[in-house]
Amino acid sequence: MNNILKYLRKGELALFIIFLIVFIIFSFSSEYFFTLRNIMNVSGQLSIILIAAIGFSVLLIAGEVDISIGSLLAFVSLPLIEIMNITGSVPLGIILCLIFGIIIGLINGYLSVYLGVSSLIVTLGMLFILRGAVYLYTGQRAIPDELMSDFFFYIGNGKFMGTIPYAAIIGLVILLIFIFVMRNTSYGRKLYAVGGNQEVARLAGYNIKLLKLSAFVICSFLSSISAIILASRIGSANHVAGDLFEFQVVAAVVLGGVSLAGGIGSLTGAAIGVLILSVISNGLGLLNIDTQWQLVVNGVIIIIAVGFDELKRNR
């Protein structure tokens, strides 16, 4: 335990304590909450947000933003389901889905970094374009997975040894990989430097444009993985999938201490942010509290967490 605590920096420790408090409250309030089954359920559900939040954090750390990830979620599930339905091959569907994700990341990145349009505006435009394209293609209906492959079903619904959801394992593996990359590789450190002080990074001879472009691609790529898990869970490419997703991700990541200004924050923090919001949502659900209160609680928590952080910094 001591070792874990040492790994968490000051801000993360505070978050972790919030998380524990929330956890304990719910454990006392609902007997079902602190059961293996529920915990495993939550971990499966949150992995969709977690994976996208990792990519989103990487991009924020590099000093850019992508608010089109919700629309992207719906968009890339089209090639996934369609290709699977047509060819009968799950891997082919997945590969195409990921390629589409990468291409969108490249487009977002190219427009922002190489043409110099603010990434907020580029991805706001992309948000409209992708959602519109999804509506256009689907005629505003969900496209069901007709292949019904077990393999695909298991991605989002299966459990390792009957207990641990595969989705949670995928999320955890990706999290660990990117924690390592951001902390312990020169590439990760360069992303921090670029987001922290672009001028310094430029003078250190970094290829800032390429670094940022890569962060855009990572963000879209990981969001596409979230899309695959989501599509597997709901068994279709849904035209309204990922609605408000970008806001959920921003909320979790910012709660986790990743700064919108770039260069500050960690993936551990972001993950704890996702954890807190997911646990609250699950706990409130178990307590039969109107699910809509979750939104209210999330909003209040974000203001308190970020406001508290700012007040502390200004002291």
């Binding site: 921003v250 109107d290 809509q292 209160w293 979750q294 209210v296 909003g299 974000i302 203001i303």
Partner: peptide, 27 residues
């Protein structure tokens, strides 16, 4: 006031307000 007194970036402050309003209108 959240923007000026708590010094929370308005993108975040009003995003949070959006969540709060969206939830409470359902309630």
């Amino acid at each position: 006031l959240v923007r000026t007194v708590l010094n929370v970036n308005s993108l975040i402050a009003t995003l949070a307000m959006m969540l709060i309003l969206q939830g409470s209108v359902y309630v």
